Simulated assay, not measured.
Amino acid sequence: MLRNITDLIEHYLKTMLTRSGDSLLEIKRSELAKQFQCVPSQINYVIRTRFTVEKGYMVESKRGGGGYIRIQKVEAHDDVALFDHLSQLVGEKIDQQTAENIVVRLLEEKAITRREANMMLSALDRTHFKLSVAHRDHIRANLLKAMLQVLMYE
């Protein structure tokens, strides 16, 4: 069930990507804003939060009169490449939302089971870390990278 304008825009863009038969979609921010009767910054918000690298998208944006947004769905060649790519994205620290995005992507790509995803999400949850944010994000990154390594060489 789509709840709000953000969900509607995300759904529309993902549908357009699927229908194009290509992994690339080029849109004009102003035209999309007009279509959804919203401000262009709402489009920016959807792109910035729903079409991230950890969710499997590359976004290129050009502002100005002839500006556009290109959204490309990137596919890993196999699960090992996906685990490796995501492990590199983690870095030294990672916030909970970004970590959750990575786990959701693994589930969507069918690289992990729902049970594995639930265990990973539980282990990465901030409520288990009674530390400062900086320490919590550092420990979360180490945990997530360790999980990805185990999954990669299973």
Rank of each mutant, 00 (worst) to 15 (best):
L2A: 09
I5D: 11
I5G: 04
L8K: 15
I9P: 03
E10L: 03
E10S: 11
H11L: 08
H11V: 09
H11Q: 11
Y12W: 14
K14F: 08
K14T: 12
K14P: 08
T15F: 13
T15W: 12
T15Q: 14
M16K: 14
T18G: 08
S20K: 05
G21F: 02
D22Y: 03
D22P: 00
D22V: 00
S23F: 06
L25V: 10
L25H: 05
E26V: 15
K28L: 03
R29S: 14
R29D: 11
E31D: 12
K34A: 12
C38M: 07
C38D: 07
V39S: 10
P40V: 13
S41L: 09
N44C: 03
Y45V: 07
V46G: 00
I47S: 04
I47V: 11
R48Y: 06
R48N: 11
F51T: 02
T52F: 05
E54G: 00
E54A: 00
K55V: 06
G56V: 02
Y57K: 01
S61N: 07
S61H: 07
R63A: 03
G64E: 02
G67M: 02
I69E: 02
I71R: 01
I71P: 05
E75V: 03
E75W: 04
H77A: 12
D79Y: 07
V80G: 03
V80K: 09
L82T: 04
L82E: 06
D84C: 07
D84K: 13
D84G: 09
H85C: 10
S87E: 14
Q88R: 13
V90W: 05
E92V: 08
E92T: 12
E92K: 13
K93Y: 10
K93C: 07
I94G: 05
I94V: 12
D95M: 03
Q96K: 10
I102M: 06
I102K: 01
V104F: 14
K110L: 09
K110F: 12
A111L: 09
A111N: 05
T113W: 01
T113K: 01
T113H: 00
R114M: 07
E116I: 06
N118T: 08
M120K: 06
L121P: 06
S122A: 12
L124G: 07
D125T: 14
R126S: 15
H128I: 13
F129K: 14
L131N: 14
S132E: 12
V133K: 13
H135L: 15
H135Y: 10
H138N: 12
I139W: 09
I139L: 15
R140K: 14
A141N: 04
A141Q: 02
L144V: 04
L144F: 04
A146P: 00
M147Y: 12
Q149V: 10
Q149C: 06
L151S: 03
M152C: 07
Y153T: 11
E154I: 04
